[in-house]
């Protein structure tokens, strides 16, 4: 599978990563190189093979429903780029 400029633009939007005009060709080429590598997977016979998302043969542990976290807003917002009145600021959100 090879991808083209339009695919890269779509991916850049999905991943919210700006790609400059001068980088788009190099990016497309290097991603195509990776896709050529991973296309080797198509040769494998995986009929009836259960996908393996996690190597552990274990199940989810459950946590008791007790409050364990105190208010640490000040600590967290000290390292935030833009805050006001306890809120994180972003350019206006339009729905």
């Amino acid at each position: 599978m090879t991808i083209e400029r339009a695919d890269i633009e779509k991916l850049a939007k999905l991943a919210q990563i700006g790609i400059t005009e001068e980088n788009i060709v190099a990016t497309t080429n290097s991603i195509n190189s990776v896709l050529t590598l991973v296309d080797q997977l198509q040769a494998a016979d995986t009929t009836a093979v259960e996908p393996m998302a996690n190597p552990l043969d274990a199940t989810q542990r459950l946590r008791a429903d007790t409050v364990s976290e105190a208010n640490c807003r000040e600590n967290f917002q000290n390292i935030a780029p833009a805050v006001a009145d306890g809120l994180y600021l972003v350019p206006r959100v339009i729905e």
């Binding site: 997977l41 494998a44 259960e50 996908p51």
Partner: peptide, 8 residues
């Protein structure tokens, strides 16, 4: 496919 190969 990759997850299936992972199991193999």
């Amino acid at each position: 496919k990759a997850l299936q190969v992972r199991r193999l």
